[in-house]
Nucleic acid binder design. Structure first.
Lengths: 98, 98
DNA sequence: TCAGATTTGTTCGTATGTATT
DNA sequence: CAATACATACGAACAAATCTG
């Protein structure tokens, strides 16, 4: 395993849903499943872009989606962190937990 | 005067606020002052970009800002229109007036 | 304090797709 | 089909904030 770890991307460019929505959904599931936990940074935009074969701007849009859903909190220069209190139904904007 | 009429842009690239926020604010004032009225399309992204010397994406971000503020309603293939009922304090998402 | 690496934020350019007229 | 206009997507660059050495 010395190669670039190019696993199967769960993203489909042909899908009707935008790539950034698909990527946001993938990350959202990782949060829901506990693979990504609160107080821990999620992979950086650059890492996400590289891992899923998308542009950095697309990864940023995905992060923006998760931000709007209240799933993550982004801090400039540090990264995006899983929100400690995920919304139960009605997403609230802003309001960082920390 | 056959050139591009580069008037004084009220936008300052040196300002701490992003260009798209500044542009959104400029348009918001035009709406508040009545210069842009409901049921009438605001200048297109291309026009705004050309008029204020910014990129299309920046003009698009400004429009997105106004959309989030509930000041305009964007219809794909038609344009962005001034909302008939501007928010009084709490911006509501979605819900086009028509 | 400074320099470098990392990460997010903003901006510009360009291309393709979709929807309306 | 053509023109107009928004949506999405990729690439590139610089700025600002954070952290480490």
């Amino acid at each position: 395993m010395s190669d670039a770890e190019e696993q199967q991307s769960p993203l489909d460019p042909m899908s009707a849903r935008p790539l950034y929505v698909q990527l946001a959904d993938v990350i959202a599931e990782k949060i829901a499943s506990g693979e990504l936990v609160p107080d821990r940074p999620i992979p950086s935009e650059h890492h996400l872009a590289d891992a899923y074969g998308v542009a950095r701007l697309t990864a940023r849009r995905a992060a923006q989606e998760l931000r709007e859903r209240g799933l993550i909190v982004t801090v400039r220069g540090k990264g995006s962190f899983v929100a400690e209190q995920p919304p139960t139904g009605a997403p609230e904007q802003d309001k960082p937990t920390g």
